[in-house]
Every structure is written in structure tokens, then in C-alpha cells.
Design a protein around this nucleic acid. Structure first.
Length: 278
DNA sequence: CGCATTTCCTGGTAGC
DNA sequence: TGCTACCAGGAAATGC
């Protein structure tokens, strides 16, 4: 999403939305989109995986690409045209239209009052940006201490830190040698520090590579992201761990496929509450 | 409030 | 070859 934001910002900032074509059926995922009409895009920001475009008149245009959504600056080819959901006509020179194509329909493209995210609970409760100074090891430790969910599931909730999806969660947990089923509150201080560092490194590297294309993801100009070639854990179940050679394993945590090394990433034992000694 | 479960959806692919 | 079944998963809705 950061790659998409960087391509969109110089193009969209200052443009007026002169046409709103909602191709998808109206619904909460496209709530109030027509209100963008006649307003100028003041900025292109990002919070986690949400794109936030403040509009003149106290509104925000909010986009989320879901699994397979693509924002493009040129018309989709015949194959992708079947999945066109939104077209925005823009003032100014070419490219003068934005296309939102979303085959699996998990994406959103809606207008809300500025900063009013009640209809987007994940955005409303989003943790700090991982590459911001506010994301300190202390803040991360305090967030993790609040939950006994498996740390992998808690990361995906977007609450301890923003923007970590399934791929980057697996990569960071592997780097930090943390078992994905470890209850968040049971990470040791050393593990919190390792995971904090790993999250920042993985996300910074992925942004430098312009993201991870496994199949659908494309930048606004149609390019692929190249971080897939640097993945060390995600999607490698059955292969040797790059660090120790042990076969990597796959489990399901919170409905998400999760790959980890059973040798490098050990579950702590016997540190839970509710334990009594005889 | 916190957490688990279910739902949305289609392209790709395994299996027959 | 052509069919069916199943899998992928981000976030919201629903159910305790």
C-alpha cells in the first residue's frame, strides 16, 4: 500500500473529482462515494493498509484493496474489465481517470466525514505505524501485554501495530524466532525486542522492493512488487528452514495459513497463569 | 469488552 | 478434456 500511495500522491494531489462512476452495486463498501464529486483531493495518506485521501469540504475518500484490488491509471484490459468497480474522472492532464478493479470484491472505496471511522472499526482501532518513531519497543510491549491471543492472530488484528498482513507476519515471526501460537502476553522481553526489530526490517525491505506480488498485486502503473524473491518463511511449508534446515511446517491460526520453523520457533512452556505447584 | 466464528468472492488448481 | 471441489485471505458482521 505504501508503494501505491507513493505513486498516487504526485498524480492525485490537487486534482478535482469531476466524475464518479460506481460500477459495483451500491453498499457499505462503497458508502457515499458519490459525495466525492466536485471535490479536490488534498493529499494521499496511508494508515496501515488503508489509503486515506482528504477531500475539500471535510470528507475523506478511503480505499482498501482487500486481497486482489488494484488501483490503476489506465483502463483495464478486457479480462480485468469484468471486475471494474469504480472509475473516477479527474481534472487536469492525463492520466485523467482512476480505475478500481477488484475481482474478489474484498476491497472498499468509500467516503466518510473527515476522521470519522466508525464504519471502519479496524481503521478506528489501528495501532501505530511500524516505521514511525511512535512505534517503540516499549509501546509494542505494552500492546502485546494486553492480549492472550496467539501472537500471529494478534498481529493480524492490526491493533498492536498497523499494516502487518499474513505474509509479513510470518516473515517477522520467523526472523524473531517466535512461535506464532505464543500468547501475545507471554513473549519474553527479548522476544518483544526481536519481533519489533524484525517487523521494521521486513516492512522496510518490502517497501524498498515495492511490495510483494504473488499473483494479483500490481502498482498503479502496472508493475509487480519484487519482495516475493526475498521471502524466507511464507509459503515455504515442507521446505528446509533457511536458518537451520529443519522442514518448515504449516498450521492454521485465525483462519490464516501460517508457516514456521518448529525448531527455530519454539513455544514457551509452563509460563502461563493458572499454574499451581503442588 | 474481548475474542472466536462466519461471511464475503472468484481465479487457480488438484483430483478424477 | 472437462468437470467438481476446494483453497487463498482482510476486514466486517455476528455470536457468545
Amino acid at each position: 500500500m505504501e508503494t501505491v500511495r507513493r505513486e498516487l500522491a504526485p498524480w492525485l494531489t490537487g486534482r478535482e473529482v469531476v466524475e464518479v462512476e460506481l460500477v459495483a452495486p451500491p453498499g457499505p463498501k462503497y458508502a457515499d462515494l458519490a459525495r466525492a464529486l466536485g471535490r479536490r483531493i488534498e493529499d494521499v495518506r496511508r494508515r496501515g493498509k488503508f489509503l486515506i485521501m482528504p477531500l475539500t469540504g471535510g470528507l475523506d475518500l478511503v480505499a482498501h484493496l482487500g486481497m486482489t484490488g488494484v488501483i490503476a491509471d489506465s483502463a483495464p484490459d478486457e479480462r480485468a474489465a469484468a471486475h471494474l468497480r469504480v472509475r473516477l474522472g479527474l481534472s487536469g492532464g492525463a492520466p485523467s481517470a482512476l480505475y478500481f478493479i477488484d475481482p474478489r470484491r474484498f476491497g472498499r472505496f468509500l467516503v466518510v466525514e473527515s476522521g470519522r471511522y466508525a464504519s471502519l472499526p479496524t481503521l478506528a482501532a489501528l495501532g501505530p505505524e511500524p516505521l514511525d518513531d511512535a512505534f517503540t519497543p516499549e509501546a509494542f510491549a505494552a500492546a502485546l501485554a494486553r492480549s492472550r491471543m496467539p501472537v500471529k492472530a494478534y498481529l493480524l488484528s492490526q491493533r498492536p501495530v498497523a499494516g502487518v498482513g499474513n505474509i509479513y507476519a510470518d516473515e517477522a515471526l520467523w526472523r524473531a524466532r517466535v512461535h506464532p501460537l505464543t500468547p501475545a502476553a507471554e513473549l519474553t522481553r527479548a522476544q518483544v525486542l526481536e519481533l519489533h526489530r524484525a517487523l521494521r526490517e521486513v516492512l522496510a525491505s518490502a517497501v524498498a522492493a515495492q511490495g510483494t506480488t504473488l499473483s494479483d498485486y500490481r502498482t498503479v502503473r502496472g508493475r509487480t512488487g519484487e519482495y516475493a524473491g526475498q521471502l524466507l518463511a511464507y509459503g515455504r511449508a515442507g521446505e528446509a528452514c533457511p536458518r537451520c534446515g529443519t522442514p518448515m511446517e504449516r498450521v492454521v491460526i485465525g483462519q490464516r495459513g501460517t508457516t514456521f520453523c518448529p525448531s527455530c520457533q519454539r513455544l514457551p512452556r509452563g509460563r502461563g497463569r493458572a499454574r499451581r505447584r503442588a
